[in-house]
Design a protein around this nucleic acid. Structure first.
Lengths: 208, 208
DNA sequence: GTCTATAATGTGATAGAC
DNA sequence: GTCTATCACATTATAGAC
C-alpha cells in the first residue's frame, strides 16, 4: 500500500518540516538533505535554489494557514451565529493539527523579503474579498433585524481571526510563562476553545 | 543637550533595530557594525558573541512586549470594566509605538533556541502570576454579583491578549491581503481598536 | 578602545563521473 | 537521477598593531 515516495516528494516533505521549524534564515540545505535521505546536490537538481524550494513550501503553508472555510460563510442554510460557531470550531481544529503554521507564515511575511506577500495576495486575494463582502452584508442584515450591534467588517473579521490564531502564535508563552501548562493541558485548552470562541464572539455582538 | 552616546550604547541601539527587523538568524554582525558606525571587532570586544548581544536585546524586547500594566489591574479605585478598558487601551497604545516587538518576540521564542523562555519566565513569571490571581478573584467577584457570565481566567486573559496583540503580529496580512489598506488606514484601524477592544470584551462577558 | 587583517568554519551552488 | 568533490563566498570570531 504505502510505497516509497519519489525523490521530489521526499524532498518536499523534508523541506516542509525543516523550513517550518527553523524559518528560511534558520534552515540549512544540509538539514533538508539529511532528513530526505539524499545529498545536497540533488536538492539543487530538483529545485535550483534554496529560495525556489522555500517558495514552494511557503505557498503550501499559506493554503493551510487560510484553509478553505469560505464555504461556511456562503452556506445559506446556516444562521449567522451558526456560521460563526462552525467557522471558529473548524478553523481552530485545523490549526491544532499543524500548530506551527501560523507563526511560520506570519514571521516570514513580516521579514518581507522577496515577494511572499504577492504570492499571498495572488493565491487568496479574490476568495478573501468574496468572504469579506458576504460577511459584510450579513452583518448589515443582522443589524437591521436588531439581532446584533453595529460593527465594522474589519473589526469583526480581525477579532475572529485573532481569537482563533493567536493562541497558536503565542503557544510557548502561554504554556510556560503565563499558565505553566504541560503539553496535555495546552491541548485541552485548545480543545475547549473550539467551542468557546464562537460563543465569545456571539456574546460580544448580540443585542441584549 | 543631545550628546553623542558612548560606543556601548550605540551598539545596543543599532543591534536592537537590526535584530528586531531581521531576527537572530537573519542578522549579520556587519549590519550592526555599519549601523553603529564602528567595525565588527568592536562588537566582539563589547559583547563577546552574537548570541550574548542578542540576549541583551531580547530581554529588553520582552519588557516592551509585556510592559508594566499590571498596576491597572491592581488599582482598586477602578471598576472591573474600567480596568479592562484601560488595560486594552494602554496596551494597544504602547504596542503601536513599537509594532514589530510582538512578531519579533514570538517568532524568536517559537524557534526555542537556547534558553529564551527561561529568561522570559525569570523576568515575568512572578508579576504575571500575581496579575493572574488578581484577575481570577475579580472574575469570581463579578460573577457572584451577577455582573458577568462564568469564564475561566485562562480564556479571559488569552482572549484579551489575542485581541490586543494579534493585529500587530499579522500586520502585513491585514494591510495587504485582507483589507488592502495603506499605512495611514492601518494606523487608523489600530487607533480605533484602542477604544473598541475593551468594549468588545466587556460585551462578551456582561450578563444580559 | 579602536582599528586592520586574517583565521576558521559554514554554506549555497556547481562540475563532472557514474 | 544520483553521487562525490569542490568552488566561491559569507560570516563569526580572534590576533595583534596603534
Amino acid at each position: 500500500m504505502t510505497q516509497t515516495p519519489d525523490t521530489e516528494t521526499k524532498i518536499l516533505e523534508a523541506a516542509y518540516e525543516v523550513f517550518i521549524e527553523n524559518g528560511f534564515d534558520g534552515t540549512r540545505m544540509q538539514q533538508i538533505a539529511d532528513k530526505a535521505g539524499i545529498n545536497k546536490a540533488l536538492l539543487h537538481y530538483y529545485f535550483r535554489s534554496k529560495q525556489l524550494l522555500f517558495n514552494k513550501i511557503f505557498v503550501n503553508a499559506i493554503s493551510k494557514f487560510i484553509p478553505n472555510l469560505i464555504s461556511i460563510f456562503m452556506n445559506s442554510e446556516l444562521s449567522f451565529f451558526d456560521k460563526i460557531r462552525q467557522f471558529t470550531y473548524q478553523y481552530i481544529d485545523i490549526l491544532s493539527k499543524e500548530p506551527f503554521i501560523p507563526i511560520f507564515v506570519l514571521s516570514e511575511l513580516s521579514r518581507n523579503q522577496n515577494n511572499l506577500l504577492d504570492n499571498f495576495s495572488k493565491t487568496l486575494g479574490q476568495p478573501v474579498k468574496i468572504v469579506k463582502e458576504t460577511i459584510k452584508e450579513e452583518l448589515q442584515n443582522e443589524y437591521e433585524k436588531g439581532n446584533i450591534i453595529k460593527i465594522d467588517i474589519e473589526s469583526f473579521m480581525i477579532n475572529m481571526l485573532s481569537l482563533c490564531i493567536f493562541p497558536f502564535v503565542a503557544k510557548p508563552i502561554i504554556k510556560i510563562a503565563i499558565f505553566n501548562m504541560n503539553e496535555e493541558a495546552y491541548d485541552k485548552f485548545i480543545e475547549k476553545r473550539k467551542k468557546e470562541v464562537g460563543e465569545f464572539i456571539i456574546n460580544s455582538i448580540k443585542t441584549k
